[in-house]
């Protein structure tokens, strides 16, 4: 029996809070013992006691409200974050986080960014340069190949990001809401690629707020609510529970600091 590709065993992740971290050097030094204590105690808990396994070839959807910890989970798998407690095991070549506008250098051209990203992912330089035309073609950006990335629109960036990662033959793919932008036609093209990967046995984790996407692409879903796993199982069941909870409105939404952004529709 093959070992699972990804294993989370009792994983917790907390982040230092912004204000305690960026205190000035002076105030930090002056109250060193106190600041150290503060630094350790004032933390935001993003994930608590998360355990799950993903087998090779699975397509897993991560669903949950904004801020529930989905992206943190992907960050842990990608290896850019380390768990505060518990263990994360990933038995595959590093895979990048495919995220909106992320991981590009604004002053480099599209082609240069492709090379940079490819080698950082551990692929040979020659292989990546050989692939760059294919990548640009798929992203439908050949005429922008030698323009700096900062001139790209967000749709163009998403297209480039998606095609870099997918054309470089990944075995494990982490997709964080990247399919949300891009026009309908390109989206359809991306679905095609993902479905092709599925047939080839590529393992994929998909964060999405679109029930349609999750239902269409995933076999299994994990619902993360308030930093913990609420449900893990077949897409139909998990999604149904999640949508039902969203309609009822979870009590968390009514915390005072969130009302400003979420509440207008309730009030009127």
């Amino acid at each position: 029996m093959m070992k699972p590709l990804i294993e989370f065993n009792g994983v917790g992740k907390s982040f230092p809070l912004y204000h305690s971290l960026h205190a000035s050097f002076k105030s930090f030094l002056l109250g060193l013992p106190k600041s150290l204590k503060k630094f350790r105690s004032e933390r935001f808990v993003a994930l608590e006691d998360i355990s799950f396994r993903v087998n090779a070839g699975e397509t897993l959807g991560l669903i949950g409200k904004n801020g529930s910890g989905k992206s943190t989970t992907l960050g842990l798998i990608a290896g850019v974050l380390e768990p505060s407690i518990g263990r994360v095991i990933v038995r595959e070549r590093v895979s990048p986080l495919l995220e909106l506008g992320g991981g590009f250098h604004p002053d480099l051209t599209g082609r240069e960014n492709i090379l940079l990203k490819g080698v950082l992912l551990g692929l040979p330089r020659k292989f990546v340069s050989g692939k760059s035309d294919e990548i640009l073609d798929f992203a439908e950006l050949p005429s922008f190949a030698d323009q700096p990335i900062r001139t790209y629109s967000s749709g163009m960036l998403a297209r480039l990001g998606f095609s870099i990662i997918t054309q470089l033959q990944p075995k494990l793919l982490l997709i964080d809401e990247v399919l949300a932008v891009g026009d309908v036609r390109f989206k359809e093209k991306c679905y095609g690629v993902i479905e092709g990967f599925k047939k080839k046995g590529v393992t994929m984790l998909l964060v999405s707020h679109s029930p349609y996407e999750i239902r269409r692409l995933c076999d299994r879903a994990i619902w993360i609510d308030s930093h913990r796993i609420k449900d893990d199982g077949p897409v139909g069941r998990v999604l149904e529970g999640y949508l039902k909870a969203m309609q009822q409105g979870s009590p968390n939404l009514h915390k005072p600091e969130r009302i400003a952004t979420k509440a207008p529709s309730h009030k009127q």
């Binding site: 990608a78 290896g79 850019v80 590093v94 990048p96 986080l97 995220e99 992320g102 991981g103 590009f104 250098h105 940079l116 990203k117 950082l120 992912l121 551990g122």
Partner: peptide, 11 residues
Amino acid sequence: SNASIIKKIMF
């Protein structure tokens, strides 16, 4: 200045 890469790719 390379934060955007560090946050996305493990290398």
